[in-house]
Design a protein around this nucleic acid. Structure first.
Lengths: 247, 247
DNA sequence: TTTTGTTAGTGTTATCTTTACACTTACTTA
DNA sequence: TAAGTAAGTGTAAAGATAACACTAACAAAA
């Protein structure tokens, strides 16, 4: 492979929706630089890497994601660069980085991406989650390595904005066949607020890209719900006609 | 000053509203690397510079802006990183950069910022616009240096989004005292669409942060308009209560 | 002084969107 | 067969949006 640039990196914030647990999680990579049991989350960082000199930022992000997690065919979105010269907080972190890359590391600017995937049985994670990789609940993700907690905050803001402006691949988070309840929960988890069930359904009713399959759930301990799927083409078509609001 | 990093830069897209000409412009820096008269806009680039090793990206952007244009006290917003390895299109551009910085330049990732200012008599530009700096109309800004036309496109998209979500310092573009007509024109120029005057004013009527001064225009060849000012504090307060929309 | 040109300023109606709100149905498990 | 759980459904009031045309006030030109 080509030469890595010691002052440029990409980092990937992977949001995973755990439909079972109804929780929004992130994928983190565990290092062993702080051996102390009580080191909190200081050993946890987002999957990331220095950028090679002949790859674009996007290419780099996809490469890293594949190398570290095996994930591919997911959509990454660049949302921000982080470049505080003091991003590397601890000497141990710098030493770890220098050893890891075999390079002298001073100041690293990172370009951050986020992606959304669903967590379920057939989702790659089972194979991918090697000893170093795991999902943690988003609420418990404080005091991560470097400035990664700050990056998390900003990624969430970006995700919420993008969700509102519907530029987003939020449907990646749901199973192919989903119920309106699951859909609503997803919005609630990401946006951090609750919606009225009837009003939500009324609104969804108008979105022609959410199409009912004739089919219902079964095996559930309550009235089985209608299953829906997301229609990409109809979605793209519907996005043309927005451009309303000002002020 | 400290050491410049040869693979990291910042670029500033400065949008200026020319209230007289009713036009949205950008500030560009002219080089002389393509002497041909017909070189179009290939000599024009956004104010930018390599990043010093001890400054944050934001610091770097503000420094550059001040050094190259004299502008300060304006609000810059980071909107995107650009890192295609082929961003530098021509050999002449690379040579110019190497000579300019006295450094070997291979691949440069740039972090792009935008800002909004008004163009008027007392605006710094008169002094600042040295031989190298000038305003060009946004519609005429094709085929700029490097990938700067692409950066312009993206900056405009970001600006429009931010304007819609009202995270934005759009009022920097207007004189301290402005008419509703000027306000409407600003929105129209940025968003690239026209609004109904009565509906626009109805909506503005609800924004308590746009406050009428008792005062009217004078010296104009038509019915003089009421002057308004923008109230920062009220604006900040009003932004609290948004968080509506989903889907 | 009158006319012309120019922008300011104003209200109503029809349609659509948003919000708030409570009960019955269908299934599983105990 | 009872208990528990989520599914599914309608209405009315309030608010937002969109479409639409004329008069008023000033400067400049005639």
């Amino acid at each position: 492979m080509s030469v890595l640039n010691p002052s440029l990196s990409v980092d990937c914030v992977i949001f995973g929706l755990d439909t079972k647990e109804q929780a929004l999680k992130i994928l983190v990579y565990e290092r062993d630089i702080f051996p102390d049991e009580n080191s909190g989350n200081k050993n946890l960082k987002f999957p990331g890497s220095l950028v090679a000199d002949d790859e674009s930022l996007d290419e780099s992000a996809y490469r890293v994601l594949k190398e570290l997690t095996g994930l591919k065919n997911i959509c990454l979105k660049q949302f921000r660069a982080f470049g505080d010269p003091a991003r590397i907080k601890y000497d141990e972190e710098r030493e770890w980085s220098e050893k890891h890359y075999g390079l002298k590391i001073d100041r690293v600017v990172t370009i951050a991406y986020y992606a959304l995937i669903r967590i379920d049985e057939q989702n790659p994670d089972q194979k991918l989650i090697k000893d170093k990789l795991r999902w943690i609940n988003i609420d418990e993700a404080d005091n991560l390595a470097f400035d990664h907690s700050y990056i998390l905050t900003k990624s969430r803001e970006a995700l919420q904005q993008d969700l509102i402006l519907q530029n987003v691949m939020a449907f990646e988070l749901l199973p192919k066949k989903f119920t309106l309840h699951q859909l609503q929960s997803m919005y609630e988890l990401i946006l951090g607020s609750k919606f009225d069930k009837r009003n939500f359904r009324k609104k969804i009713g108008k979105a022609e890209y959410i199409v009912p399959l004739g089919e219902k759930q079964n095996g559930v301990a309550h009235k089985p719900a209608m299953l829906y799927r997301f229609d990409h083409k109809k979605f793209e078509r519907s996005k043309e006609g927005i451009r309303n609001f000002f002020i």
